[in-house]
Amino acid sequence: MNEFFQAVRDYDFMQRAVLTGLLASVSCGIVGSYVVARRITYIAGGIAHCVLGGIGAAYYLNHVHGVAWIAPLGGAIVSALLAAVVIGLVSLKGREREDTVIGALWAIGMATGVLLFYRSPGYTQDMMSYLLGNILMVRNSDLALILGLDVVVVTLGILFYNRFLAVCFDEEFARVRGVRVEFYYLLLLALTALTTVLLVTVVGIVLVIALLTLPAAVAGHFSRRLWQMMLLSILASSIFTTGGLALSYGPDLPSGATIVLLAGAVYLIVVVGAAIRRWARRRAEVPR
């Protein structure tokens, strides 16, 4: 563990890694709480995986056609927002089965990405880093983008808190009160899309869902209200990202997977703890 603190002191790539984790935790805590409370984890998963298509497209344009104006993370943002709008409209208006559409987009997005990476030089290494994340490779330009996304997500997530809460809790009633339900639902999915892009740098596409849901799920066990859940899950997520980074550094483990396993372990402990508490309470109530 000492090695880790030394490394943070000495290397700026380590400082960037820790900072990336903390910045991502803020969006992750706010949006993750909405996602978990509204039970749209599967939608978030679909959006996250579509991101590979966008990254692949940008990467292909960069390396094969020499187009420089779009960075892979830019492609990620475009594809994530596109996926959010499509899934959102299907879920609001569509007559297709929603989960089928999400599954289809999920797979098509991934396949598009794989194909485009395959046609670009040096694809395997780079594609793997997007799939599994490499927080140690974050550059200053990435950090600026992450900070920008953070500002957007946090501002909107807090500004429209009451509307989002109402739409998530009882869509019909929100409509009676004149809230534009479709607009806020799509906006929430757009924020989810931006957050998944943020998280791709931290843990990679495959593991995004874990970081979006596990801190919020842990926090949900200790909160009665949504904003409490948000604050706690920002805290939990900060601990998971920094802790995972620290645990992985010494033995040279993949950081993304370590972060997710740490979050998963804590979640498991909380769930089992809650079950034991319920069981003990029931026993105490049974008359002897």
Partner: peptide, 17 residues
């Protein structure tokens, strides 16, 4: 939703939306 994180006041205040 039995797990939705709102208290009674949160729900009633939604009437003011």
């Amino acid at each position: 939703d039995p797990e939705f994180p709102v208290d009674v006041t949160d729900v009633v205040t939604m009437g003011r939306l």
